[in-house]
Design a protein around this nucleic acid. Structure first.
Lengths: 359, 359
DNA sequence: CAGACTCCCGGAAACGTTTACAGCAGGCAG
DNA sequence: CTGCCTGCTGTAAACGTTTCCGGGAGTCTG
């Protein structure tokens, strides 16, 4: 009745060998039972009991090495603090979860090196696929995307001929929606608070803003344009600089975080919103609805883009030979109190509901 | 000169065998060169060239199976939309990155099953360790934590005797800080908008609020207490319900999202903040500083807790035999415009700076 | 010049699974 | 009674890496 020393893994945890030895069967039988395929009633009983006794938990790494899949999908974004990525993530998560996989998120901090390293390292088989939403795209970056060892889908603009699955929106048209709306409301001194021009969205929005003004025959006063980065604090500081030298009657902001910063700067400087200055943000995140007054915002369909990206990714995982595909989500405008046509009372609108006008 | 078919992995990608064959060396030599240890100049040259030609990328799974580590650390939180977790995540990320590892985030959606499943599945060796911040803790959950196959650190309250590394704060004292501050400012009809009472933080904050009022000899009017969940929309709705039946001169909110909802509800109902109603949030996130007026908030040291949790985790990964440790981070109060003592002008304070008083 | 020492190389054994394959026993039909 | 089929079982070979170990060649020392 001497108890023999059972085989175990290097760190002392039980392996399938431990279970098999304890149950007095082969590792093949043990594995089969643990996976629920085959096995006589008696074998099943013995293996189950042995596994429970030693507290067996399968080593997912070893299993993945064998099966060539991990059941994990990664999302890499530059800043989880930005609610637009939260919304995108939720959409992706629900699609991914429905396929029985788990979603992992990685924040790159917007650093190219970081993101490329992620692609080159983590993607090297730790995940079955990944979705990345880069805001800067270098050649090196693109190369890493193209010959990624796992399927990759990009959310955002990418060179026209890049052979990578891609879900984009048209942020130039998005900016135009905002400008059209403000012009229609009688605003003429329309300012723009943007993010860095060396980012893909920053450049696109700048171009879109200039084009939209031109389309209305409005000469752009360069003093009404200011650049920070895509964060709250920078948006607020940029707006303060802008207000110090010019007097806009409307502001378009390149995303909602900037718009919230602008709102803060405007209110702190004693401007009324929307009476004195109308304000329109971009991305139409939950944050826009949290503000008082609620912010009008251009929706770039982040949830929809996330959903579609996830679907593309799952399809490509299922069939890696698919040709590269490209999908586009149209922007729309949600008009709320921050740019509503001012009622005769002159009071801020209470806006307990969220009126949305989709253009 | 006939080119022989090189060995390759099942999915057609090159392996170390491919590289070795192409370079005319053994896989051992190839592996050594690729890892930068040893190898004659000539061998190094040949292997490097072969690797570049076939586009070799190492299979991280196989490497991990061998080395018993993945270089990945996971953080599981219930809701990435909550900025408190973003701050915690950033703190964790910086510690983890400094150790040469990568951080992955998983949103559990607050569902127990989800979180337990994560522990039971993903943790089964895909990551070297994980940090979880559960808001509900069941026995099953606790069991999964205790016999996790990888090191786990919990951020948040946990049963006193749970043998798990744990970083907590004292949210009861935190609530007391808010109440003390409001009482000192002359407020007496202090309301409380809380999250679900069946969550750990919800229960602790409820108890803390009642105790703090009692300490000041104030009878609690139950109509001044309302419960929603820890989200913006619920906070706003809960505050609307509260305002419909009572008339507080101050509100304490169980987190900043709720506080923002409360601010919106107050302003929409025509109350001035802080003149009519003072407002104090909790968690002291970036969101509190984004509001106008800026929100006073009780800091529960989320960044500090994250940092410490990450350090505990790294220590435990290095030495799994360490006894369970418990650390505590003291709360503090940041007083801002939303609860500032009202100036004689009666105007809202511009508060361009962020005055912080640490209690 | 012989021996020891260094350096580099290749074979082979791990890491912990899954699974193809073959062997074996038992049941049933001819 | 014999042959085939069915259902389990165990052996062994993968999956792609790293690494231990022994052998061979070259160099330095005595």
């Amino acid at each position: 009745m001497g108890r023999k020393r059972l085989p175990e893994s290097a760190d002392g945890r039980p392996t399938v060998h431990t279970v098999a030895a304890r149950a007095g069967v082969s590792i093949a039988s043990a594995s089969r039972v643990l996976n629920g395929v085959g096995g006589s009633p008696e074998t099943v009983r013995k293996v189950r009991a042995a596994a429970a006794e030693v507290g067996y938990v399968p080593n997912a790494i070893a299993r993945s090495l064998q099966s060539q899949r991990t059941g994990l999908v990664a999302l890499a974004v530059e800043d989880i603090g930005n609610p637009v990525y939260v919304e995108m993530m939720r959409a992706i998560e629900s699609v991914v979860a429905a396929s029985g996989r788990q979603l992992l998120v990685h924040a790159t901090g917007g650093q190219i090196a970081n993101e490329t390293a992620l692609l080159r390292r983590l993607a090297h088989r730790y995940v079955d696929g990944m979705i990345v939403s880069p805001i800067r795209v270098t050649d090196d970056h693109l190369a890493a995307l193209v010959d990624s060892p796992v399927p990759v889908v990009v959310v955002g603009q990418l060179g026209a001929d890049a052979p990578v699955d891609n879900v984009r929106t048209d942020s130039r048209t998005g900016v135009a929606l905002a400008v059209d709306h403000l012009v229609a409301a009688g605003r003429r001194r329309i300012g723009f608070v943007n993010g860095p021009l060396d980012t893909v969205p920053g450049a696109a929005r700048d171009a879109g803003f200039r084009a939209a003004l031109a389309a209305h025959g409005i000469d752009l006063d360069e003093r009404l344009v200011e650049v920070g980065d895509f964060q709250y604090a920078a948006g607020r500081a940029a707006t303060e600089r802008l207000l110090a030298r010019a007097c806009p009657d409307a502001l378009v902001c390149a995303n909602d975080l900037i718009a919230v910063g602008a709102l803060h700067a405007l209110l702190a400087a004693g401007h009324r919103v929307p009476q004195d200055v109308a304000l329109v943000g971009m991305d139409d995140t939950e944050l826009a609805r949290m503000m008082f007054p609620q912010l009008s915002s251009v929706s770039l369909g982040s949830a929809e883009r996330g959903r579609r990206a996830a679907e593309l990714l799952l399809q490509r995982i299922a069939d890696p030979t698919l040709p590269p595909r490209r999908e586009q989500v149209a922007p729309s405008l949600a008009v709320r109190a921050s740019s509503a046509t001012v009622a005769t009372t002159g009071a801020e609108l209470p806006a307990p509901r969220t009126p949305e006008v989709t253009a």
